[in-house]
């Protein structure tokens, strides 16, 4: 596997109508590592995350400038197909959002629409591996036909992770995946993220610096639409180069 960064962004500006939400963000995201995006609310970290799989396209007034290269391809090029892009880059949201269908149907949804399933055994295999990887298999193996919404919050979020994994992406974006969960469920998710790093590149937005320190190898700090600094997590937290980072991690802003 190559050592080159899987995502490189150059001078990314994002506008909502007349309002500029991101100013010239340039960042490299290394392969098979966890990168966390931190910063006070409204700093643009979620906006940045959502430009990577073009979820921002859903907002009519949103406009993205600059370059976001994934696997060496600018994803805002004309010939890029968002459907294919999003199959390659999975996403997990802030609040667990399982479909009002069975657990099985939830996991198999993505593979089904992408035509990855040829037989019933294919389906069963994908569901089992995905749920195993999401650490949920043992808890739900005997009740796959129950609705996904009947699970607890933490289980629901792991189901959403399983659902994202099932499509076999190489990158998973996580938008504050544990913010709606209790501490125990959060710990389970954090452990899971650490395991997933072996097979996936993960970018996680978090409002908790502790979480960033626990789960990620790289951290990027955003402030008022600027990428202030980025680097190895340990370094960034122990010897920040910018004063704003210093203020944020010491609790003076945010």
């Amino acid at each position: 596997m190559s050592k080159e960064p899987i995502i490189t962004t150059r001078n990314v500006d994002v506008f909502y109508g007349d309002k500029q939400a991101l100013n010239g963000v340039t960042l490299d995201v290394p392969r098979n590592k966890v990168t966390s995006l931190i910063g006070p609310s409204g700093c643009g970290k979620s906006t940045f995350l959502r430009s990577i799989n073009r979820m921002n396209d859903l907002v009519d007034i949103c406009r993205v400038e600059g370059e976001i290269m994934v696997e060496g391809k600018n994803i805002y090029d004309k010939d890029v197909d968002v459907v294919a892009l999003r199959a390659h880059i999975g996403m997990v949201f802030q609040k667990p959002n399982p479909f009002p269908k069975s657990i099985f149907e939830n996991v198999i949804y993505g593979p089904k629409i992408h035509g990855m399933i040829k037989s019933k055994s294919d389906a069963e295999e994908i569901v089992e591996t995905s749920l195993r990887r999401a650490g949920l298999w043992k808890e739900v193996a005997d009740r796959l036909q129950e609705p996904g919404t009947s699970l607890s919050g933490g289980q629901q979020q792991r189901l959403c992770i399983a659902r994202a994994i099932a499509v076999k992406p190489s990158i998973i974006l996580m938008d504050e995946p544990a913010s709606a969960l209790d501490p125990i469920a959060t710990a389970v998710i954090e452990e899971l993220i650490d395991e997933l790093r072996q097979n996936y590149t993960i970018i996680i937005v978090t409002h908790s610096m502790q979480q960033a320190a626990r789960v990620s190898q790289r951290t990027a700090f955003f402030h008022m639409g600027d990428l202030v600094e980025s680097g190895a997590t340990k370094e960034l937290f122990t010897s920040p180069r910018d004063e704003r980072t210093q203020n944020y991690i010491s609790g003076r802003i945010g």
Partner: peptide, 17 residues
Amino acid sequence: MTDLFTTASGHLRARHR
């Protein structure tokens, strides 16, 4: 790898249709 995110497969084209 450049056609990774482009509408390469027939399946994808059918979905867009």
